[in-house]
Design a binder for these strands. Structure first.
Lengths: 193, 193
DNA sequence: CGCCGAGTTGAACTGAATCAAGAAACGTGG
DNA sequence: CCACGTTTCTTGATTCAGTTCAACTCGGCG
């Protein structure tokens, strides 16, 4: 599928979008590639873009006392941005690291907000994206509050086995809120059954 | 301040709202009161409303294995709803319990979505509310991931001392993700210094 | 080869949970 | 206004999930 159609399909999954509005949205987009290990946004920067991931994968994390804590992973056909910073205009607490070389559409923030101003569909898509993000965060908060490390791992396995396969122990454990050693032990347990 | 002005002030803090749109939004609202211990929404129901809290306080919580886990508190001038259920149309995982007798505006979901459809400002307010909710959730997720119980308590103290005063140990501990006994001990520590 | 980062395993440690027993606070009815 | 039962909060003793630190294995790569 060509990149523009890929974007259109992703947007259309949120709400119907009139052709002329989509055309406005997509006509000036640049494609930008990122090598493994590079960053879409670094902690402390003020986010200036939304990215649409055509291929590859990324990891959002923040640091505290020198330790890294992963808040999410993103894969192709997803929109990615340091949402907190994009919304607040404050320095991002979160870094976005490329963990599989990626091709993206680069959507400047100013352009996005212009799109919000010009079109009702724009606002709607923005609302639906924010709502979807909210739901992800709430679900995770509930899991962090109420489940043990082992239960969180089990749940992730069942919801997204591909992710569990493809991501390093180091990154996965920091997403689950545990140490790599603990995840290793949990895995051993699961392998037995 | 009269209720309508109170609502208008709260909405205006999100974005400017034209008079005729506000009039449309506010003209048919009912006021509904809730006694202490009653519920705005119960786990398993499909949320049909947004509430605007004119006075009082509420607690959002879910249960797992018979235990309660609090995800948030709300006070006057805030919008309250079982957001997950409102968005997904699925049964709410979350209950909203009144912890100080409350007066609310009752905003039916159908009416809200009608407002979204009719006005661009509607969509915008919806977007801004969802974004604000997202930020709260992200901040909490980050704290749950990276801080110890004691650090989370200290942070809450400094951010919202009134809340720490006014809420029972039981509810506060379930919000911090610890047992009441642990919170009691943490408090004793803090009292010493 | 030999190095290096990623993953595993073991042993000791610790923050918080659990269990159990009191103490304080609260409302309700006599 | 006090006596009571009920719930909330505190305190102590014990247990446990997960951390920490250290040593070892493994596969990739210069």
């Amino acid at each position: 599928m060509n990149p523009i159609d890929q974007l259109k399909a992703a947007l259309s999954s949120f709400t119907e979008i009139p052709d002329e509005e989509f055309h406005f949205f997509s006509k000036n987009l640049q494609i930008k590639s990122f090598e493994n290990g590079t960053f879409l946004c670094r902690e402390g920067q003020i986010e200036q873009h939304i990215f649409f991931l055509l291929s590859g994968a990324t990891r959002n994390y923040f640091t505290r006392d020198g330790k890294e804590f992963t808040v999410g992973f993103h894969f192709e056909d997803e929109f990615i941005t340091a949402f907190y910073s994009l919304l607040t205009r404050e320095p991002s607490p979160v870094s976005i690291e490329v963990i599989q070389s990626s091709r993206t559409f680069l959507i400047p923030r100013a352009f996005l907000y212009d799109f919000y101003d010009k079109f009702k569909t724009g606002e709607r898509i923005g609302r639906l994206i924010a709502e979807a993000q909210y739901i992800k965060r709430l679900e995770r908060e509930m899991e962090l509050l109420s489940l043990t490390a082992e239960q969180r791992y089990a749940k992730l396995m069942e919801r997204n086995p591909a992710l569990v396969q493809g991501i390093s122990i180091k990154h996965l454990s920091s997403y689950l809120g545990i140490q790599p050693e603990s995840l290793s032990r949990i895995r051993k347990q699961f392998a037995r059954n």
